[in-house]
Nucleic acid binder design. Structure first.
Lengths: 209, 209
DNA sequence: ACCTGAACACCGTTCAAGT
DNA sequence: ACCTGAACACCGTTCAAGT
């Protein structure tokens, strides 16, 4: 249902109501239960539809495997960044159509990347978990976006908190508070992804052609 | 509040109710609002308390940095595995006490691991995001655990679904369905973590002593 | 096969009033 | 400073009844 996605986008998961959605669709709340079992299923379906946008953005190209994985991962991050409510509902081994498609694409790229066959499953799921799990952490709503304060102000306030910590007790945080202020979420997602793909290359002996 | 954690453990996030918790505490529902602002804060506080168990399990040892990171990560996974509801509420750059402690521990270990100083922040947050994000994906409730069907049956059914897919359309899933049936969640978390740490070693020139 | 809409059994949250 | 508990404004979900 496209109407559900639109409503989720503007009012969040709590703001999506059967009554509201029903009114949007010019029907009664009970009618929706003919099409979905409950609200959980409704939101899961809507989230899977968001995930579907990825395949329109990233066609099944024949490039280098590592490049393909990167492009796919970034496309998922971008899609979830546009619809923060969806991130926590895209779980890797779900049975929904687009989640299946995503895992298969990742797996197919891993197979071409020179990974030993017995590690295909472990590597593919690790990458899949990274993409959806870390995206969910980064774009998590309720922290930066929907609060009255902007993202800038929130980070500045948190960074101040870190600076106020005892450097003996928190040697790392006190030192890196400045980095928090001006980091870019997307860059950070990519930095971790590259770390993971580096580890992949270090393990795989064969060339990734 | 320890009572909140206990209630969350046995009834899940939806099962935790202000009325129920109040009764457990021999008081009225309104009384709780003197101590927490709302339910979100209550759950976040309870989740942070779960995270606190990690530091009791993993003392601040002086071992090799990579070994320390592994131990810390696994301890977080195990803690969240015991309290599945908490996983999605432990977000990395939160301001809660134990989340701060965790990030600082990770960062301190990264500093000792031979990573160039300008990459400390990116690497530490990447590892932190992996730990909490991927744990949340793996232990996510509502899929394997709390349903009436057991985990075994659920995996078997999903694997059957994969096997039924068209191998031309889903070359990877159709081929690896068997792996899904008998995988171990914890091993998979560790496999991905090792991939990430491998990538770290490949980047860091200096020895990790 | 699919929609209607009133009704049920809850929730989180508030707030005047107490101690 | 902290608790009480009735009341408010909602929810998700069900179900007899319609078409």
């Amino acid at each position: 249902m496209g109407a559900a996605v639109a409503l989720l986008d503007e009012r969040g998961e709590r703001g999506l109501t059967f009554r509201l959605l029903a009114k949007e669709l010019d029907t009664g709340p009970g009618a929706l239960y003919w099409h979905v079992a409950n609200k959980d299923e409704l939101v899961a379906l809507a989230a899977d539809q968001v995930l579907g946008q990825v395949f329109a953005a990233v066609p099944c190209a024949e490039e280098d495997a590592a490049v393909g994985l990167r492009a796919l991962a970034v496309a998922v991050f971008d899609a979830l960044d546009r619809h923060a409510w969806a991130a926590s509902h895209v779980t890797a081994p779900a049975a929904l159509a687009n989640a299946l498609r995503l895992l298969d694409r990742i797996g197919s790229l891993v197979m071409r990347a020179g990974v030993p066959a017995e590690r295909h499953f472990a590597v593919a799921t690790a990458i899949s978990y990274y993409i959806t799990g870390v995206s969910a952490q980064i774009v998590a709503p309720g922290i930066t976006a929907d609060a009255a304060v902007g993202r800038e102000a929130f980070l500045a306030r948190t960074a101040e908190g870190w600076e106020g910590l005892d450097p003996d007790d928190y040697p790392f945080l006190a030192r890196t508070a400045a980095n928090l202020r001006d980091h870019d979420d997307r860059d950070q997602f990519i930095a971790g992804l590259d770390l993971l793909l580096n580890g992949l290359n270090a393990t795989a002996e064969a060339p990734s052609a």
